[in-house]
Amino acid sequence: MDKLSVITSFLHAIVVYNVPLLYGTVGEIVVEKSGSLNLGVEGIMAVGAIFGYMMGCFANSLGVGIGVAFLAGVLCGLLFAFLTVSLQANQNITGLTLTTFGLGVYFFVGTSLKAVKWPVMGDYSNIMKGFAELPIPGLSKLPVIGSGLFSHNIMVYLGVAIAVVLWWYLNKTAPGLRLRAIGENPGAADSVGINVNRMKYLHICLGCGIMGIGGYYMALNMGGSFNSNCWINGYGWIAVALVIFANWSPALAILGTFVFGFFNTLKVSGSTLAAAFPGGLGWLADIPSQVFDALPFIITAVVLVVSSVQKKKNSGQPAFLGLNYFREER
């Protein structure tokens, strides 16, 4: 393989295999901006994945898959919102429970389906067609980076578009301003007549729906092969950490996704890179693969340490994050 195409495929892999993280991160940012800390990302992505995949295949339509994954996420969000907003349950515990619950649903549905007849992705022409690459005219013709960065399936474009739109929504619109007010000081928001509970329900559901789509994308990336490993494979947890890395900005989440994606991809493509550039990157081959496996999580830990030590005045972290709001509290 020639050296430049190794770089191209390396870049390509970063994008394709890590944009699901972007869905999880951006979804969680929307939820957290409303003041709710949802640790159930992993479970919600799993639920979105299994239902999205199943229904998408049955309908032989990528659009149906995306829609069902979104709805499955919304339902999880509704459960989370009902427990934490209406019933004032502890957010951490509810989120963790949702992860366990979501993974349980995933394996229950998946195993049951496998016992009857597992839908094989390749059999569904419309899904394969829909998931095929769509090169961006012009940009994709650029040397080296063109087909690495600008020739992808529609889920990649959708993920980036959602991130950009949500950045605009949070920072440049009046509803976005109200949402941020709730995350910072729900008492203040309430006192000026903002319907705190309705806004929280809406945005928890929206964010969880986005996570669900991310889960579906993971399923497609895995080729729809169901085995003992969950498709989500810890990405939900990395998304929770990426929110902090991105300083609660959907735009920065795009950058964060690629930084994490770079290390993630080293795990898979490290040896190829080492073979293509024995002079400069040969040392990559000497590193045990376990180090690469651990790398995303090590980076996560480092990011958490660094962002905790830094005392930023313009931190994007909502001041009321993780706390329930009850108007009559004294």
């Binding site: 440049k172 619109t173 976005g176 007010a181 203040a188 928001a189 313009n314 001041a319």
Partner: peptide, 27 residues
């Protein structure tokens, strides 16, 4: 209120604007 109901990280204008009726979509 005795304990002010203000969002610390917002500007003065945004603290007022967040409760405005019919504020439109775009800030």
């Amino acid at each position: 209120h005795q304990h002010f109901k203000l969002v610390d990280v917002f500007s003065a204008a945004d603290n007022i604007w967040m409760g405005k009726e019919r504020a439109g979509l775009v800030l």
